[in-house]
Design a protein around this nucleic acid. Structure first.
Ligand SMILES: [Zn+2]
Ligand SMILES: [Zn+2]
Ligand SMILES: [Zn+2]
Ligand SMILES: [Zn+2]
Lengths: 143, 143
DNA sequence: CCCGATATGTTATTTAGTTACATCCGCGCG
DNA sequence: CGCGCGGATGTAACTAAATAACATATCGGG
């Protein structure tokens, strides 16, 4: 029985390894961002035991843009938009009450940052834009 | 002898506590960003021993805008521009070769982000913008 | 002087990420 | 087939980053 790793309802890429698929599946089914150790806890039953196994998978996934790291949270999310890597600069809005994360690409922001870089001689390789605050739902909540 | 804490060449604010002044002084004299533990190591001779002492001082300093936290680095820098807190959104360009950090405020970026927030109902409380790459000096270096 | 607020000091613990090293598995090649 | 190589895995030990819990000290106002 060839039995590659089944059991998932969605396929993101056909060449993910077992661990990568497990990690990405966990992120995809989560309601919000997860730390590497959160992910590990959820994958103990699948045989994963060491942080490094998670970090290795996350490295590959973030390299390929299938997952993103939230720097201000030390946590990771599944990419919400399969085409986000076409835009070099992805921004995140993180709700501090419910934990929801919205991923969005504002080309204007990217060009602003590129403009500053050009003017100052800085050569950017990676851009991090993260907003903290309250999502629309939580902001309109009573208390 | 009243002897508040002297020995510094510059005064940032007159009401800093001893630990806050030590930490800010360390950041100010550093050539690049420092982690909390880096700071601790440099303040052992001044009697500081526990991470918490550093983190407490850093909390106050960042609250007041005298220091900034670089989320993508888990490190801190002294504020380069005493008036930066007038702008809600401060951006950083971090050189991955020499470690130099440039702090800049692009009002256009802030208004872009505010625009997105307004349109989507998100209520931001804090914004993080960090560029990684090569500073002008390092980018023009041979290898 | 007493009290509350703020700052400090100390120890232990939790959370995050890395280093080092052994093993395993698929694949091309002689 | 047998070998060698690169990528993925597994495991243990460790460093780094941040916090929890608790005890003291310091200062200013009533
Ligand atoms: Zn994405
Ligand atoms: Zn929310
Ligand atoms: Zn500043
Ligand atoms: Zn540089």
């Amino acid at each position: 029985m060839t039995q590659s790793h089944k059991g998932h309802d969605h396929v993101w890429a056909d060449d993910l390894t077992r661990n990568q698929e497990l990690v990405l599946g966990t992120l995809a089914h989560a309601h919000g961002p997860l730390s590497a150790y959160d992910i590990l806890d959820r994958l103990r039953d699948d045989g994963l035991r060491a942080p490094l196994q998670i970090y290795r998978a996350l490295d590959k996934l973030t390299e390929r843009g299938l997952a993103h790291r939230l720097e201000s949270l030390n946590a990771f999310v599944c990419c919400a938009d399969a085409h986000c890597h076409q835009s070099g600069c992805i921004a995140f809005a993180i709700c501090e009450r419910c934990g929801k994360v919205e991923e969005f690409a504002e080309p204007a922001i990217e060009s602003e940052l590129k403009g500053w870089s050009k003017a100052s001689g800085f050569v950017p390789s990676r851009m991090t834009v993260e907003l903290r605050g309250l999502c629309a739902g939580c902001a309109s909540q009573p208390a």
